[in-house]
Design a protein around this nucleic acid. Sequence first.
DNA 1: CATGAATGAGAATTCATTCAT
DNA 2: AATGAATGAATTCTCATTCAT
Lengths: 228, 228, 228, 228
Amino acid sequence: MKEKAAGPNGSRRRAGPVGGAPAQSRELRRQGRETLRKLCEAAITVFDERGYNAARVDDIVKAAKTSHGTFYLYFSNKEDLFQALVSGVTEEMRELAGELPSVDANRSGYEELRSWVGRFYDLYEHYHPVIRAWTELNAQNAEMARRGAVVLRRFIEQLVMRVKEVDPAPVTDPETAALAMVSMVERATFYAIGGLVHVERDVLVEQLATILHVGMFGGTRRRWAARK
Amino acid sequence: MKEKAAGPNGSRRRAGPVGGAPAQSRELRRQGRETLRKLCEAAITVFDERGYNAARVDDIVKAAKTSHGTFYLYFSNKEDLFQALVSGVTEEMRELAGELPSVDANRSGYEELRSWVGRFYDLYEHYHPVIRAWTELNAQNAEMARRGAVVLRRFIEQLVMRVKEVDPAPVTDPETAALAMVSMVERATFYAIGGLVHVERDVLVEQLATILHVGMFGGTRRRWAARK
Amino acid sequence: MKEKAAGPNGSRRRAGPVGGAPAQSRELRRQGRETLRKLCEAAITVFDERGYNAARVDDIVKAAKTSHGTFYLYFSNKEDLFQALVSGVTEEMRELAGELPSVDANRSGYEELRSWVGRFYDLYEHYHPVIRAWTELNAQNAEMARRGAVVLRRFIEQLVMRVKEVDPAPVTDPETAALAMVSMVERATFYAIGGLVHVERDVLVEQLATILHVGMFGGTRRRWAARK
Amino acid sequence: MKEKAAGPNGSRRRAGPVGGAPAQSRELRRQGRETLRKLCEAAITVFDERGYNAARVDDIVKAAKTSHGTFYLYFSNKEDLFQALVSGVTEEMRELAGELPSVDANRSGYEELRSWVGRFYDLYEHYHPVIRAWTELNAQNAEMARRGAVVLRRFIEQLVMRVKEVDPAPVTDPETAALAMVSMVERATFYAIGGLVHVERDVLVEQLATILHVGMFGGTRRRWAARK
DNA sequence: CATGAATGAGAATTCATTCAT
DNA sequence: AATGAATGAATTCTCATTCAT
């Protein structure tokens, strides 16, 4: 039942990384765009290895096989680069949130939900270094925390909207329930991908989809749970 | 229905903060213990304001109204101090995990669960600055991440144990379900306390307890959900 | 009584800006001369806004709407460009010094003097950004300071020569008096043009000419001072 | 006729150098004050040798035989240190301006004036490195230029005030005349001390005092000019 | 015990200059 | 002749840690 898509969020990958302040104030030619891309990739690698705070600009330029001076041609500093990366993530997360399908209480509803959770998992996995760095920054950078909150609320809103389509209402307080559910999906995925717990992707995705389905959309677990 | 206890985790508060390496190698008199306490409190305040990485030893000693020299009389460095704070949290978290009660599918089971979730919330709130700093460090310090994982798994274990007491088994894969549920409780609490979403403590605690009860212990939401 | 000439130093403007070392080693076609001119003008503008030291090659090429590469096609560095600008100023200053007229104690002598001071003022105003940048460099560049001293002494010499033509000798120590007078004219003009004090050009020119006339050439202020 | 005072501005030397922003936010003990003093002296030496812009913080700390870290304990950067030095100069200049005596047309008036110009010369000589650095900064730092203008206007005001005490009025436009005279004294002193022209202190002081006396206070040069 | 002062390694950033197209 | 891109040496500044009193 492996259903991992070709890339996170299906085939709609963004064109390329966006630069920070300095890069946006000028036209980039092919060579420039290539360097920008190398820097972004290098940064992701380095953030993955050492985390945001411990990452040095020097590590990034070494990983990108370029020079200090070049770095500052594209980004005004490490945070600027990071903001650019985060922009990519938030944009894809927004889209994914918007694609949460209508869900009914039947098996087809469950399957749609499971597929969606799977896409969330894959996106999350792809951007894991960035997301982890993001959690690091939340404590020291209010703007970053705010951007995270915006994405979180967007997920909650979408989930609430879908839940309200269901009749009879399966939950009495959809906002709070949605907060709980989104928290669950996000954090369990985080733990799984970070390796803090050992669990297979598909097992987790199924379990999360099941809880969501039962808890929010009136799905009944027992009838087909033994299928596996 | 406010049920906040007198202090986090009831009356079993630890004696006082423990010092780092330098402090443990000698006897502390009254004045010494007082200075130690001031430093720990100051550190919590500063970590709350700026996060761990952005916190400077200078900020801490200023907040504690003492000097750099004195800081190093009690802790060998910033991380040493932080480890001391984290030790307090992990210890209390371990205990709380051990106190997860047996839960039945009835209302009394729900109420015990709710009380326990409430205690989790209060403990989490009390140590919020430390916990937030901890998430910051996870990305850059493997030992810290390991300690976090230990606590997480302890919660999962306890929950699994309680779930297995229930007959007939309400979930097919208790380990994964427990991961999901612990993630949910932890993260929703984190968002609520951090102010990223706006939700009342008691509303959240009830919702989380309900989902746990229904999802893990076979509780039925509908019968008494209208009670409120 | 406005007597500002058509351009600084009358009609004897230099042909065009001279380039630095790289530009002088090759023939410049029309396009090249145009680029050279744009760079010089841009440099003057930037020096005016930020001073010499704070001026960046990047500022200059942006202001000239050209590129870094082009800059180094015409000048070997920032100082080379500046030397080129200074050469223009020193040359015109030398000429102006040489044109200090013979002055008698009468009104006609005063009027010739006033006209000459006016030309000094206008020349100084035109080159103000360059001159101000020059004062900046004097402290850090001995060669620049030397070139400034040469111009200063040239003015002093000329003034001494004119004073010695007068009989009976109106001053006992013409060298020192000339130093004082040249200092006065230069610095008062500098303050006026820089806007550090608020005074009209013609008022200042008259006053300076009067003091020079009375102090160096035996002019008597009282007879016609009320004229205005 | 050497009349150089014991120190610039007589015996009223200020207590000691003032620190920059960081130093002012805490109490300085004896050792701290000593270090502050060493840094200021070292800075003056280095500014003298290389000028303000070419001076490196590294040069200053080497000259002061201390470390980089220490520098930033007392000043937030090179400019902060320089502002502190300039504050000392402006304060003394203000005082000296306030001490311009009443001057009559007789020899005694001349002598008082000469003594005052001599004190100006000595003060200027003592602070020459600072003043030269100041002229460097004028072009790139508006605040510095403003502070210079304030001092200049203070001198002009005082001179105008003294001139207005004289009856009958010797000059028709005292403000402009005062600008000219202050410019003369300042700039001639600057050239003399900087070594751009070669002239003895006492010769220059006498000449400047004479011109001031004759030009502003109705003194008559001829009667006693041959005395020398 | 406590403290103010000093330290210096390490990190970020700038910018004149060169290079490849 | 022009240009966008790259470079890296030089510089500033920070801050955990040590030291002397």
